[in-house]
């Protein structure tokens, strides 16, 4: 009899060469790995870290946009923004649930976020001072996220892949509403157009950093590709994003803040693509390590939400216990 339910925590596999070879063969056959399947502990660890970071990014990502819900200029924009931020909360939940199937608890992950031990996407450590930032986030940040997440729908770990399918389905509206918002500003008064351009100037480079370090500097990349957790390298995805996004900017009359950006017909095996300037990796690492303009605020907001919600969680559990006790008492009385 086997009663541990749906949560896999069998971490005592002996990692013999035969076992590792057979595991890799399963991956190569495109078989999905499910929570209760034996897996190398490094595979489990990599996924817990990656899915956890992804979940934290969704939750922290609610903050920069939440900043504008009460000040959205129209009811239409407000409804869209509310729905989007609510979606991000849901996406965080799908992802936490996927990580939990690997034997890590929600409380543990929350604790790691709040203590600063776990990372989240560096992009959310930038501020949103103007309404155009909401457009730039939807268009660029969600656009970059989608570029990352679509291949993750084919990730070798079943629960992560399934969560990504839901997320991608919901996220395409996020990018479209952002682009539409930018387009509206770009077609507006000179001040509005300027606001859109300013937001693009501030978000473009951080968006490119979202794909992570260059392949040559990415420590986890090779093994993740081999295990089919990742399907494309950081640089491949970044190039796809640039190629997709530059024409979108041109279409609405905005200019990428990169003087070195230019079309290169020989790129991408002759299909053509854009050459672009070099990324400021010092900035990237500074922000990842906590030195971004909003790191302190973001974590303080998460901590406050967690602490302020403590009495609600306690009350809900106490209420549930009281109801169980009463049901038990009336059952005993009836016997």
């Amino acid at each position: 009899m086997y009663s541990q339910g749906l949560i896999g925590a069998e971490d005592n596999v002996e990692e013999t060469p035969e076992f590792l070879e057979e595991f890799q063969a399963r991956i190569d056959r495109e078989e999905k790995i499910e929570p209760n399947d034996p897996m190398p502990s490094a595979y489990r660890k990599t996924l817990i870290r990656q899915i956890g970071q992804h979940a934290h990014s969704e939750i922290v990502g609610m903050l920069p946009e939440g900043n504008w819900i009460t000040r959205a200029p129209t009811l239409r924009r407000k409804a869209a923004l509310l729905a989007k931020v609510q979606d991000e909360g849901g996406h965080g939940l799908y992802l936490y649930a996927a990580a939990e199937t690997l034997g890590v608890s929600r409380e543990q992950m929350t604790e790691e976020l709040l203590s600063g031990k776990a990372k989240y996407s560096s992009i959310f450590n930038y501020p949103t001072p103007t309404w155009a930032d909401i457009g730039a986030i939807g268009w660029l940040v969600d656009g970059a996220a989608i570029m990352n997440q679509v291949p993750l729908c084919r990730c070798s770990f079943g629960p992560y892949a399934r969560a990504m399918v839901r997320v991608c389905k919901e996220e395409s509206f996020h990018q479209r509403q952002g682009y539409e918002l930018m387009m509206t500003l770009a077609e507006g008064s000179p001040e509005q157009r300027e606001m859109a351009q300013d937001a693009l100037n501030r978000w473009w480079w951080p968006s490119l950093m979202m794909f992570g370090p260059h392949d040559s500097d990415s420590t986890n990349s090779d093994q993740s590709m081999k295990w089919k957790i990742k399907r494309f390298t950081n640089d491949e995805l970044r190039q796809k994003f640039v190629d997709a996004t530059v024409p979108q900017a041109e279409r609405i009359g905005l200019t990428m803040p990169d003087p070195e950006l230019k079309w290169n017909a020989d790129k991408n095996d002759g299909e053509g693509g854009y050459d672009f300037g070099s990324i400021d990796w010092d900035e990237f690492w500074r922000v990842v390590k906590g030195g971004g303009p909003m790191n302190v605020d973001r974590l303080a907001a998460r901590k406050k939400a967690w602490d302020d919600g403590a009495w609600v969680r306690e009350a809900a559990l106490a209420h549930a216990q009281k109801r169980r006790d009463r049901a038990e008492a009336s059952k005993v009385a009836a016997e």
Binding site: A9, R44, G103, R106
Partner: peptide, 15 residues
């Protein structure tokens, strides 16, 4: 690493 089930404060439900 340990993957023992830390007692989850709030129960998990399948939907």
């Amino acid at each position: 690493m340990t993957t023992s089930h830390a007692p989850s404060l709030t129960p998990l439900w399948e939907v």
